[in-house]
Simulated assay, not measured.
Amino acid sequence: MTLASAPIPGPLRWAVLLLRGEAVAVGLVAVWLLWADLTAPTVDLASALLVTAFAAGAAAALWALGGALARRRAGARAPAIVLQLMLLPIGWFMLQGGLGWLGVPLMALGLGVTALLVSTPTTRALGFE
Rank of each mutant, 00 (worst) to 15 (best):
R71E: 13
A108N: 11
L45H: 15
G75V: 01
L49Q: 15
T42Y: 05
I90E: 06
L85W: 08
L33A: 08
L18Q: 11
A58V: 11
L111T: 14
L126M: 04
L50N: 11
A4K: 06
T52G: 06
L116S: 06
L33C: 02
R20H: 12
L83M: 14
T114C: 02
W63A: 10
L45D: 15
V104R: 09
A64I: 05
G21C: 07
A125G: 06
G67D: 04
A4F: 01
L19V: 02
W101D: 04
P89D: 08
L50V: 11
A78M: 08
G10V: 02
T42C: 08
G66W: 03
L109D: 15
A108I: 10
V31H: 09
L109P: 13
A60D: 05
G91C: 10
L38S: 10
A76E: 00
L99D: 07
L45I: 14
S47E: 14
I8Q: 07
G97N: 15
F54L: 12
W101F: 13
A48V: 11
L49N: 14
A125I: 00
A76R: 01
A36Y: 13
R20V: 13
P105F: 01
V43D: 15
L87M: 12
R20T: 14
L117A: 04
A68N: 01
A76V: 01
P79W: 02
R13G: 01
L28F: 11
P7S: 08
P121N: 09
F54Y: 05
L106G: 07
L19A: 01
A48H: 15
G103C: 05
W14K: 11
T39W: 06
L50R: 14
L99C: 02
G67L: 05
L28Q: 01
A68W: 01
A53P: 03
L106Y: 06
S5N: 08
V82L: 11
L102S: 09
Q84V: 00
T42N: 12
T122S: 02
G27V: 08
V24W: 12
L62C: 02
V43H: 14
V118K: 05
L111Y: 05
T39M: 08
T52Y: 03
L99M: 12
A55M: 11
A25G: 05
A23E: 03
P9R: 11
L126N: 01
L28A: 14
L95E: 07
T122H: 00
L102C: 05
A53G: 09
G100L: 04
W101H: 09
L95Q: 13
A115D: 09
P89W: 04
P79N: 10
L18W: 07
V104A: 13
A74K: 02
P121R: 05
L38Q: 14
P89R: 10
P41D: 15
L99P: 03
L19P: 05
G97W: 07
A53K: 01
L83N: 10
I81Q: 12
G67W: 00
A48T: 15
V82R: 13
G110K: 04
G127D: 04
P89T: 12
L50T: 15
A53T: 11
V104T: 12
A70K: 06
Q96P: 00
P105W: 03
A64K: 10
A70D: 05
G66V: 03
A15K: 08
G110Q: 08
L85C: 10
G21E: 01
